[in-house]
Design a protein around this nucleic acid. Structure first.
Length: 106
DNA sequence: GCGCTTATCGCAC
DNA sequence: GTGCGATAAGCGC
C-alpha cells in the first residue's frame, strides 16, 4: 500500500508547538513501513510552511536531517526554533524528546 | 556496546 | 524504468 502523503501532513498539522513526532510513527500511522518514504514526502513538502518538517525527528530523538541534506546548517536554526517553542535540544538530539514525542495521534 | 547491512516506499531524473 | 534518499531494525563482532 502507499503512504497517504495527505495523512502525513494531517498528522503533522495536528502536532502542537513544543511537540515532535517520529518518522516511524508517521509511517506506521498511515499503515506503511516506508520510514524513508515519509522523509521523502516531507522533502518535497508541497504543503511547505503548513507542514513543520523540522518538528519530525528520528526515533532516537535526533534531528536526523532536513531539506534533503543534513549538511544544511538550517538544522541548527530549527533546533533553536524548537527550543523557543519549549523543546529542549542537546547537540543533535532532543533532551525532552521522550516527553514531547507524539506517539499517539489516533 | 558499537558498527554495518538489509528492508521498505516515495519522488526525481 | 532506475536510482537515490530526512530511517529503522536486526545481526555481527
Amino acid at each position: 500500500m502507499s503512504i497517504d502523503a495527505d495523512r502525513i501532513y494531517c498528522l503533522l498539522s495536528q502536532v502542537p508547538e513544543g511537540r515532535v513526532t517520529t518518522y516511524k510513527f508517521l509511517a506506521h500511522a498511515v499503515g506503511s513501513k516506508g520510514y524513508r518514504a515519509v522523509g521523502q514526502i516531507l522533502r518535497n513538502n508541497p504543503y511547505a510552511p503548513h507542514v513543520p518538517c523540522h518538528r519530525v525527528v528520528s526515533s532516537d530523538g535526533s534531528i536526523g536531517g532536513f531539506m534533503g541534506n543534513r549538511s544544511g546548517v538550517h538544522i541548527q536554526k530549527k533546533k533553536k526554533l524548537l527550543r523557543g517553542e519549549g523543546v529542549k535540544i542537546k547537540g543533535n538530539t532532543l533532551s525532552d524528546f521522550s516527553s514531547i514525542v507524539v506517539s499517539d495521534f489516533r
